[in-house]
Design a protein around this nucleic acid. Structure first.
Length: 247
DNA sequence: TCCCAGGGGCCGA
DNA sequence: TCGGCCCATGGG
């Protein structure tokens, strides 16, 4: 089997085994119509729909770094309950206080600094990026060059932000803005190795880029929305499988 | 008690 | 460039 076929069959296997995962969870919408008690929304791919929902995903992507999602939920709930959940209030808030509010997520001093930085980025970039992606989602034709330009611009912009590395940048692109890019994590590297799709070089960044490139070339749909959907599910399913195989 | 979880920054060689 | 170290809580 070619690597291309291996990747395709891995995706098919995972989606038929686990079904739609409903990523990225939006905790503030938990138990609302279409959402479960943790804010997952299986088969609803048009979320996030609002600025605040996008901000929740951006914040979550920082808080979850090297951290179990369960602890991120506690930190998010703290932010909601303290009525601190908006870009403005996070910026306004004293850093030490912010750190205490997000304490359950761990690395709280580091993450308070990171949240300040990503929030500044969000305030100056959210509107323009979501406008552009709305246009792609509506258009009938997949303008590949334009989309690739958008990806590389926003991505390199994000990577300059303190606290944002490749995985966090791609998570924000894909899950907050519906920009079709594949998120690579340690589960992905392990799973691809097991399935003999990829032999690790040992160099973290290089592995990341090579795996991402492979997946991008396999799913070359001309339809923007279905591409976003596949990358959304594929990463979420790999995380599901990764957790499943550990236990 | 130990180990890991939906990483990334920084520093010295 | 790259390896090693640091950040830190909570659950199994």
């Amino acid at each position: 089997m070619s690597k291309r076929q291996s990747i395709l069959s891995l995706y098919e296997k995972l989606i038929s085994r686990y079904g739609p995962q409903g990523w990225w969870p939006i905790l503030s919408k938990a138990n609302k119509k279409g959402f479960d008690e943790k804010g997952y929304h299986p088969s609803l791919y048009d979320y996030p729909k609002s600025k605040l929902e996008r901000y929740e995903i951006v914040v979550g992507s920082i808080l979850t770094q090297n951290t179990a999602w369960k602890n991120v939920e506690k930190a998010l709930l703290n932010l909601f309950h303290k009525k601190m959940f908006s870009p403005e209030s996070v910026l306004k808030c004293e850093q030490k206080f912010l750190a205490q509010v997000i304490r359950p997520a761990g690395y709280y001093n580091q993450k308070a600094i990171k949240l300040k930085h990503i929030t500044e980025w969000f305030i100056s970039n959210d509107y323009i990026i979501s406008k552009k992606t709305e246009r792609f989602k509506r258009s009938e034709y997949f303008k590949e060059d334009e989309v690739n330009l958008l990806i590389s611009e926003v991505r390199s912009n994000l990577l300059k932000v303190h606290g944002v590395g490749p995985e966090t940048a791609d998570s924000i692109l894909l899950y907050a803005y519906h920009i079709p890019t594949f998120v690579v994590d340690s589960y992905t590297k392990r799973l691809f190795q097991i399935h003999k799709i990829y032999t690790p070089t040992g160099k973290n960044l290089l592995d990341y880029q090579k795996i991402q490139k492979m997946v991008h070339s396999v799913f070359n749909q001309k339809d923007y929305v279905s591409k976003v959907k596949i990358f959304n599910e594929f990463h979420a399913l790999i995380v599901k499988e990764g957790k499943n195989s550990v236990n």
